[in-house]
Design a protein around this nucleic acid. Sequence first.
RNA 1: GGGCGAUUGGCUCAGUGGUUAGAGCACGCGGUUCACAUCCGCGGGGUCACUGGUUCGAAUCCAGUAUCGCCCACCA
Length: 919
Amino acid sequence: MTDTAEPDTAEPQLPKAYRPTDVEGPVYDRWLAADVFAPDGAGSTADPALPPFTIIQPPPNVTGSLHLGHAQRTAVEDLMVRHARMRGHPTLFLPGLDHASIAAQFVLDGILAKEGESRQSLGRERYLERMREFSESTKPIMLGQQRRVGASADWGRLRYTMDDVSAKAVRVAFERLYRDGLAYRTEAMVNWCPGCRTSVSDLEVVSSPETGTLWSIRYHLIDESTGEPDPAETITVATTRPETILGDVAVAVHPEDDRYRALVGRRARIPFVERDVPIIADDVVDRAFGTGAVKITPAHDPDDYATGKRHGLPAPTILADDATITNTGTQLDGLDRYEARRRIVAELAERGDLADERPHEMVLGRCQRSNDVLEPRLKTQWFIRTGPLATRALDATRSGRTRIVPDRFEKTWEHWLTNIRDWNVSRQLWWGHRIPAWYCPDGHVTVTSDPDGPTTCQVCGRPAAELQQDPDIFDTWFSSGLWPFSTLGWPDDTPDFRTYYPTSVMETGYDIIFFWVARMMMLGLHLTDREPFHTIYLSGLIRDPEGQKMSKTKGNVVDPLGVIDETGADALRFAVIHGTAPGQDQRFGRTKLENARNFANKLWNATRFVIGARPETIPSGAERRLPSEADLGPAERWILSRASATVEAVDAAMAGYAFGEVTRLLYDAIWNEFCDWGVELAKVRLADGSSTAAEREATWWALVEALDTYLRLLHPVMPFVTEALWGSIPHRASDPDLLIVARWPAPTGRDDRLERDVDAILELVRGLRNARAEAQVEAGNWLATEVVVPQALGATFEALRPAIERLARARPLDRRLTREALGEGRASTDGALTVIAGELEALAHRPETASDPAARDLERARLQRELDDARGWLEAARARLANDAFVSKAPPAVVEGARAREADLADQVARLEDRLQDR
RNA sequence: GGGCGAUUGGCUCAGUGGUUAGAGCACGCGGUUCACAUCCGCGGGGUCACUGGUUCGAAUCCAGUAUCGCCCACCA
């Protein structure tokens, strides 16, 4: 808390105009000053008896700035966090940043290129120094953006995937996986990106359908008598990558292929490298594809690698890290892969060994990051054995211990985890966590989590000085996979880990369910023996108004700060949550944002009205009190009952993670109920000289009560404006100073009968307005109106009479006892407007048009339309009831409802017919 | 090749088998009502992609079809 004692917190002035940017900064500062974000902060009002609620933020990459997607995620996470906090749970929203190894290097390399530098020119140490500077420079920007969005995160617990605690977690996790036999080092086929100069995991390969070329090439068979190739005898192979010829070690055919049966066991000469290789039989070969003979390049093709292994063939590597030809001893060494391809094809054509060349539809693997065409190649790397880990992750969701929202993603989850392959975690990059593995000259492997490395070789005891650490770093997702617990201090048994782990909800985009969520689950289960979260909430992606994915290259990314400057963070938050469903992409455009801003403005003005409408008999700064029952009128009871109904509905939606439903409920309740009717009804009573002071006070307190409820309910979505407004209305003695730590409202009970009665009367008002509008009666022209109200509604009607008069522009408003009495004593009812609304009926007189036949015809036509409509509905209702199956099989309540409806409609129709005859 | 999603008013989207399917924007008419023109009142506009099925009852559940989109998939 600061030492600034505010003299009059009870009723600060609200500016007339709503300016989000004026509100948001100061409000955020108050939250910070009050120390309410941390579960154990000075301003926390959490009930320690309740279970903690924890959200660990998906850490954005330190590569620059946040985009709209981040803002959306933050909004959803913060919504859940604020809701839990208001419900009294000790609530931790832990923020963080991700070092994003490959993504960050990609960005930095771009910056360096503009300076004429490169990774290589700087060297590892200087490069990492530049990276540290770069990431430090982006941090404040990104944290500032989160703050503007309104993240109520515990900044004191801010974490970074490259900080010391994470580094320790990475080492310990890897050591444990190694000891448990789940991390192993082997030579295997990996996806190599020549642009990034690193291997990438299978997930980082983007399949790209492209039209390539399928070349058919003749290899000459060896005449074993001379040991030289026979110019006439050839075997034709098909390939899309002729440069890999240089690495060929065999030609394979199907064992039952009669065309080639005789050739198996003979040898063929590989051009350029002039190597003689065997013709082998293997049933991987598809006889129908190409020529039915396949060249085998074990070092540069996953299938060929497997074939080579089966047949004990060598695997010469012919591509260097930058995808130039190497190690072939030919003129082609040093050439780029595509240049080599061109020359090889040209040379083969010249020699007459190019049998065919045709366009070929194929799927290329490209690098997710650089878009380079990936080369499969052999590398000795570290892998995580995912089989056993995936089994446990599957068990978590199948058992329901972890729930995925929306649940359809469980199918995707199942499919991926049941077909999962081992995870290549070695990256030949510099920015990231170095793999804590050391190798001795004898090839022994030592893995240790000791920050100083091993003292001796674990196998042969050689001293550390003779050991060499693996130069590679971990896939950035390895440290991300530890995030839910490394952030809480794991592997140490810290108080935070004990208190806040397992966490509650993991919110993220569905696009990284495999990259991240599955790995957190797998690593979390193995390393902590518990599911790291009970719920996975997957957000949809934000797209531009045309439905395109936002991306920097397309130039359609929206800067959240620009949006916030324009319409406010509250509007942004509301807009990204309103009208959406989990896992469903949304298009984001101006109108949604403007609508959200208008809603905030509406709330602002409604609150200004309430503050300004305080009866003089209530002193400024009065402590909040509930209105006394006796002084409540139907309008007040209706307002309070509806507010309670909204609490119930919002609670149900919240429980189902239906946040779009939450905003819809609140938008309707606040705008269409509270403002349009509640406030309008209250205005009349507040200004009514005939009501007592106690009644006027009760009206005001009822407004305050409902407004207070709505501000609380809306706070998780629109935290700034609700906090500012709440600060200006009276509070209960038990309330804290700030809404953010105030209690979530509980339903106070509904009065169904009263809601129905008031609704019936409001329906009459609507009917009168409608009739007036259609008849083009000027707003200022109050019509003398007669009305028939059923006995049961009499008291409610009388209590609301002044409001009805004003809202329906109906004065004098005479109540008749029977419908027959309508128009009694009038010279003529010609031109009068007839309104039938449920059981209520009204006749609004228009003396000035009483003798105008055109007006009369218009009114008749209007009634006729209503009658036709009503007849249609009645017919449908009767048809339904005429169906014996419906009556006997549908639940009694439904049948009863249908009967009541039929009766109502029949009555309506009869009355409309009646009135139409009179006119 | 497999899987998933979408298809609802002119546009963008909600809709969790049960009265007459909703909202915002856009559109039309009318408004200087003392909270709000970022507003108020009233209105027009939908055979819920198509076909079949389950059910007393289907936008909703099932099967199939079409179009668009996404994800997964080692065939040269």
